[in-house]
Design a protein around this nucleic acid. Structure first.
Lengths: 341, 341
DNA sequence: AAGATTTATGAAAACGTTTGCAATACTATT
DNA sequence: AATAGTATTGCAAACGTTTTCATAAATCTT
């Protein structure tokens, strides 16, 4: 009665219904040109009628690709990663792949576990955020010979193929903008840099660029905030409340910058009149906030798209030539910075 | 030499190395109690040495679960969904499942394609956002007998098991807050409601609640904006620029409300003095913006977590009893609303 | 119209696991 | 010391596909 009496509609059920052999059904899917149009029609009708859905797991056992790509991110719930994930997902979808997603909360040991988990599912490739990973992770990837890539950071000598931006340059550009405007007393709010090479690179290069111009940042001008508007707001308020306040704030990313901006507004400070604020990232929304946030734009969407395209090419090609793509940065001057008084 | 000479380390390679049969190796993983401690140790050593990683696809062919759950969302790049995805992912991860993620951009036909794609991978279950889906999707789910659930909406008579909030109530609560404050001239900014039952329900119930109090919303007080701060800002500016402006704005979600707030600030309007603004959702950041956004809180994280927990239970239990969980809403009055003049 | 190609199909082995059943090696009982 | 259990292991079939090889049918040569 029911077209699908048992729920186990497989290729042989289809074959039976179409009165052909399983081989022919399989061929209809994989090499349609080898099957006569008439038979193909019969088979398609049977597929339709029975509601057959291919079983990729079974295909995979014949050396076929699983058609999945694993992506391991620190966190999903994060403007910038969400944007990258979306773009990456769309790009690999275009190439017929499906995304297996896992997050580790900035814990490199958990990252290893996640990569391992994905490999149990025999992903055709695994993409990681950033270039800093545990030795165990690298070993696992090498051992399994799973194609792997890094997203978000670019480095000339990177171990893994990568598509991303130069975070050191980003930090430098932010610092130089402030310096050019004449700021010398600069406050810094950055996230914890452990297990986060992006933040690490940015912070180091900011400090370096400032030092080159003879500007040093005393301890009490530095604050740490996790990736959260609320906490960054608090951190900024703390920086502002101690005696003399800095003339400018350089924030490790736009979320923190946004929090800092609210913090300043809360303290009754005019931005940029009383204090200039610059972020890094140019997240969705940074342009629209009032006043518009000055920042260093990292093209998240481009990075995600490019990464997805390039990675699927890499996986499906048999040559497997390494790739390293550097996406350009852009200084976006909006309303939160102005010359020092 | 190399511990893994060919890349094809399978259960029989391990068996060979440990000098036991493949069956015993398999048992060591699945029923360790049936294997003597000594043998287990030998096998574990071999696993370690060869770097064996289990192949879930092969297990799956024995009626075992694939250990994956599919989640299909309208978009990933969206504060509220990112939060749900993160919580859902964490919850199913706890239960040993891996997330297969796909997005459809509010296109119900694409949603069908995505569900189908996930089913080819034999996900153990598929979770969808919202209760409105194409007939083809429902048929597919029924036919394949794949466990399915809806996230984000709650409805007593829902076809699918669901975990979510009552979007109609959310709309009503927002409207009533404004009415209680004495507002009668109310502007509305909502996203396109096609393929988006959440927005649909909210809008209808808002209109209904207003009508009950004899308040109608003329055409020129209604504006449509996609899920984007920038465009909502423009929409708000349009609403404000025509002659007499409304005394309050009710926005379909917090992103729109945020855009509206910036729009008001841009127009030199004081919020809430000149215009009150209320959103729906209470997204991350809504609390921190200046002034804090008044909104109807929908507990995204709770919903995602609960959905993940409940769904994995559902999948792993053999009883398969339906579930429908309604997560409570909360009116969060912050700084963007005040009594009408 | 007979042989030589070409095209379309089927049979069976293979992929990496799990598991029911059978076989063997212990241990406890008398 | 023989018997009955029990704990441990191996064999082989099964899962749903793909693919190689062989066969059968259709088409082309001359």
């Amino acid at each position: 009665m029911a077209p699908n009496q048992k729920g186990n509609v497989d290729i042989v059920a289809v074959a039976k219904a179409a009165k052909v052999s399983p081989s022919t059904v399989s061929r209809t899917f994989n090499h349609p040109d080898l099957v006569s149009p008439a038979t193909r029609k019969k088979i398609n009708r049977a597929v339709q009628k029975l509601g057959y859905v291919r079983n990729r797991a079974a295909q995979m056992m014949h050396g076929k690709r699983s058609g999945t790509i694993g992506l391991v991110v620190p966190t999903i719930n994060h403007a910038i990663f969400a944007e990258v994930i979306q773009a990456f997902s769309d790009a690999i979808d275009q190439a017929g792949f499906t995304l297996l997603l896992a997050s580790h909360g900035y814990d490199l040991d958990r990252e290893y576990e996640m990569v391992r988990k994905l490999m149990e599912h025999r992903v055709d490739g695994v993409a990681l955020i950033g270039l800093e990973h545990s030795a165990a992770t690298s070993r696992l990837i090498a051992q399994q010979e799973t194609p792997a890539m890094a997203i978000w950071n670019y480095e000339e000598e990177s171990e893994l193929p990568c598509v991303g931006a130069d975070n050191r340059l980003a930090g430098r550009m932010a610092a130089e903008h402030l310096l050019e405007l004449g700021h010398r007393d600069i406050g810094l709010i950055f996230p914890d840099t452990r297990g986060n090479d992006r933040a690490q690179y940015r912070l180091n290069s900011v400090l370096e660029a400032l030092r080159e111009k003879g500007v040093s940042v005393p301890e009490h001008r530095m604050s740490e905030a996790p990736y959260s508007v609320a906490q960054a707001k608090q951190a900024a308020i703390r920086l502002f409340s101690g005696g003399a306040r800095p003339s400018a704030l350089l924030c490790g990313n736009d979320v923190i910058a946004q929090g800092a901006l609210y913090g300043a507004q809360k303290c009754g400070l005019r931005v940029p009149g009383d204090v200039s604020i610059i972020g890094i990232g140019d997240f969705k929304g940074s342009a629209d906030i009032e006043p518009g946030l000055t920042t260093i734009r990292i093209p998240a969407e481009t990075i995600g798209s490019l990464a997805g395209q390039r990675f699927t090419e890499y996986i499906t090609s048999d040559t497997r030539e390494q790739f390293r793509l550097c996406c350009g940065l852009e200084r976006v001057v909006r309303g939160t910075t102005c010359p020092a008084a």
